Simulated assay, not measured.
Amino acid sequence: MPFLTITFPAIDPVAISIGPLAIRWYALAYISGIVIGWIYARALIRSEKLWGGPAPIAPLQLDDFILWVTLGIILGGRTGYVLFYNPAFFIEHPAAILKLWEGGMSFHGGFLGCVAAVMLFALKNNIPILSLGDITTAVAPIGIFLGRLANFIKGELWGREADASVPWRMVFPDDAKQLFRHPSQLYEAALEGILLFAILAIMVRMGALKRPGLILGSFITIYALARITSEFFREPDPQLGFLWGGLTMGMLLSVPMIIVGAILIMKAWRRKAPEHIEKST
């Protein structure tokens, strides 16, 4: 192996094994992301300073919402993968749709599932949709970060071929071509997870929650830009390959997000602060 490479860390994909019960890193990433996100969201809700008054969402309502958003992530993520990435296979093998343990989740589908969960729960409980969306997306990068780390541990969704100018390039065990590749999962963990979380956290501390929809719009826009950037280093799904003009499915699905996010940001800046915020300032 050339000097300018890093050996892929052979980590057992099973994190915890107790008899016949096996919990994989992928599942643990989802569980940890939801739990840590819930804890962080409760902290944000309890801080009246961040909202300019009482938060429009009660902690108990957030607790109930966790089940809704979890279902949204799972159902939306799987549906998105089936429709966006491999429809031909699942038309021929419909029973495989239920085999979640074999992998196959789409962020864009999971995001749409979250949007549906936010809207339905907010309407049912008389909660402002945009504020609930702000809280949900403020904590979302935590789960994205852990999920990308799980992708790396599993050795899936690897990057495109990298030359010797990339000292951290590596060979992934399941790569039939055994090429030196970018560890694009780590790029996504850094951009879509750490960087996005840091930006949104700073915005929250600067009072962004006082303008409903600002965090939501910023999350959508910044994630889309980060995803498009990462896609330049990520190997396209083999069943799809490159699409129009060398674009990938991840890029194409992210373009509408930039437009929607920009609209939400502009509307949030133009919208007047809620009445309880105006009175408290």
Rank of each mutant, 00 (worst) to 15 (best):
I153M: 02
F90I: 01
I228N: 06
P13R: 00
M257C: 08
A58C: 00
V260W: 06
S280R: 11
F152E: 09
G104E: 00
L214Q: 07
S131N: 14
S218E: 09
I277W: 07
F152M: 05
I18W: 14
N126T: 13
Q178W: 05
A140R: 00
F145D: 03
A116C: 05
H182Q: 10
T221N: 08
L44R: 11
A190Q: 03
M170P: 11
I194H: 04
A96V: 13
L209T: 12
I277H: 10
E278K: 06
W68T: 05
V69F: 01
F232Q: 14
V115I: 13
V115P: 00
G250L: 00
K279I: 07
G104F: 00
I153P: 02
H276K: 09
G155I: 07
P9A: 06
W168T: 03
G147H: 04
E235T: 09
L225I: 13
V35Y: 10
Y40S: 07
D175N: 06
L98R: 09
G193K: 01
P128V: 07
I142D: 03
M206K: 15
Y81R: 12
M119Q: 03
H108S: 04
G37T: 02
F111D: 04
I91R: 10
G207F: 02
I144M: 12
K154R: 11
F242E: 11
E102I: 04
A176E: 15
A27N: 14
N126P: 03
G80S: 07
I222C: 10
L214A: 15
P9I: 09
L4P: 15
L186R: 05
A41L: 09
A140C: 10
R227I: 01
A190S: 10
I153R: 04
Y85A: 07
I263W: 11
I11Q: 05
D237E: 08
P183I: 06
I142L: 07
A27G: 10
I199A: 15
V166Q: 11
T70K: 06
I129M: 08
A162C: 15
